[in-house]
Design a protein around this nucleic acid. Sequence first.
DNA 1: TTGCGATGTCGTAAATGCTGGCCATTCTGA
DNA 2: TCAGAATGGCCAGCATTTACGACATCGCAA
Lengths: 332, 332
Amino acid sequence: MASIYDIAKMAGVSVATVSRVINGEKYVAPETREKVQKILRETGFIPNANAKSLTKKKTNTMAVVVPDLTNPFFTEIIRGIEQQAAQRKMAVIIANTDEDLEHERLAIRSLMGRRVDALILASAARAGKEIRSSLRDDIPLVLLDRKPNGLEADLVRSDDRGGAEILVDYLFALGHRRIGFISGKAGISTAKNRLEGYVAALRGHGLEPEQELMAPGDFQRTGGREGILKLLALAQPPTAVIAANNIEAIGALEALREKKLDVPGDLSLVCFDDLELASQVYPFLTVAAQPVKTMGAVAAQLALERLAGQSSQRREVVMRMTLLERRSCRRV
Amino acid sequence: MASIYDIAKMAGVSVATVSRVINGEKYVAPETREKVQKILRETGFIPNANAKSLTKKKTNTMAVVVPDLTNPFFTEIIRGIEQQAAQRKMAVIIANTDEDLEHERLAIRSLMGRRVDALILASAARAGKEIRSSLRDDIPLVLLDRKPNGLEADLVRSDDRGGAEILVDYLFALGHRRIGFISGKAGISTAKNRLEGYVAALRGHGLEPEQELMAPGDFQRTGGREGILKLLALAQPPTAVIAANNIEAIGALEALREKKLDVPGDLSLVCFDDLELASQVYPFLTVAAQPVKTMGAVAAQLALERLAGQSSQRREVVMRMTLLERRSCRRV
DNA sequence: TTGCGATGTCGTAAATGCTGGCCATTCTGA
DNA sequence: TCAGAATGGCCAGCATTTACGACATCGCAA
């Protein structure tokens, strides 16, 4: 690759001048500028951003780490982030961890090595200490959707307890009294909050939460499948089930279909998080949805502010959930 | 940030030794190694990858540029790529262009500046010259799904003409004779091939293709909406419609629902590309699907080979499409 | 006309964090 | 004793930016 030296030589000026032209700085004569720009154009020179970041000590890059790139919840968030970043002419680099802690560690370490300026993280970790050593401790960090235990940082999440309440209320109003719950990945804050919200909401209606009605899950399809099977196998199975996220609901739906069970005929099903595209094809699942794109935008803004050094105290933005009633439930 | 010099000083060795320890090279005594590693651990040192790439002249990174991150077709492909990359310990960096040429140019330029080792590109460009100046001309490049005119590079695509044939055959067999087509983004190879396949397949059945049955599109939701509306407004509307991709089909479906038209009752609808998650929720749309994840894996492999300097001739891998029959069509 | 500070233009060289070739020294075993 | 092998330091190089300094030019007051 050509370097700025080659350009300088071709243009008969010094590297400093070329650098000035490239970065549109003052103090270069119009003719000189023109001459250099001509060479730049002709050679299609693209400066080495790595070398630049070495001296500038910043990369103009923000990183986003998500646990599941195929989940529309996260891709929509990413779009929100990208829009904000583009406005500040920052690049966004996306990493996917497949809900796997080791993947996440590697991804974060790689990003830290690249010296990204800020990190937006939807972590697969339960506790901060599981990833802390992979993080540079001075990096502007915004936690997204999930808060690993003991990791202090800005946080954008939604009101999971409130969302759980909305769902339980809805099912209760339809007459359901045995309401099952397929939990999210153990140890993840979001999963915990949703479960707690569910328990609290049940109590609010004078219902006693039963252990057997709460199946473990993992936020993935298999968790949904296994969860629903477990609940169905109960002596007294639930009449309605809440899945802790959209993907689990899909897994559950698959299992139900294989067992030739009808939703909502044989069972009512709702979940957290909307399914963007899918719900356009077929507005089926009733869900508690979050303002996804906004969440991304807010996360990016927090990161940017943190980067700019404003406000040093920890901030937490909580988004309200909304019930989108469709047709996966019936009155009993 | 601490640098390798700081570590060297703390450990009382030279930077070279620290470098050797970090990279697990030979010729460093066990005690020295242990001593350095201890410091490394304590300080949580993460080497600056940018500086490293400066001297090594490679970044161990492969970039993927896609036009629509919310389209499951592309996210699945990305997963295929990631798996291959992970095996070679390469990082993948993902960029999203929202089907916008200017976005794409910026993204590519940014990636070139970062000196990524290889680029996998599903381009929004019609012609190679629209983006050529943003590309380093020596970069290992693999085109994905789409081939901008005049851009010579390895290519992984699917058999779009064959796919169109499959869809037309299917509809024809169901008795449809007026088959509409909502095209993809004008100028994109994939769109062109699908349309040509459609025309050819019609002729193959002795049907004369009619201009009015071919609506323009953009591979996006709006294109689907407008396309279907156009077709419905015809004096003699089609009884079946093929959308050039999954997202357009969703747009079409939305418009149909708003007009209170039933699929397949009032109209049969099929499209290219499957809808992963969505089709799990509700196996509705009949589609011509591609082996998505494999496409990603193959693309990554081609890039890697190109990077390794093997095989200098241009390669093209064409994947066969499969009909996934569901229930968006009826016999007429 | 001269003098001089301000301003504009450009080059030199150091610095950034890392690798790797080369060389010097020490150690090992025959 | 001596050939290697093992160990580790020095320094150049990678592609940038930027502080600093050298000149040139200009405006304007003396």
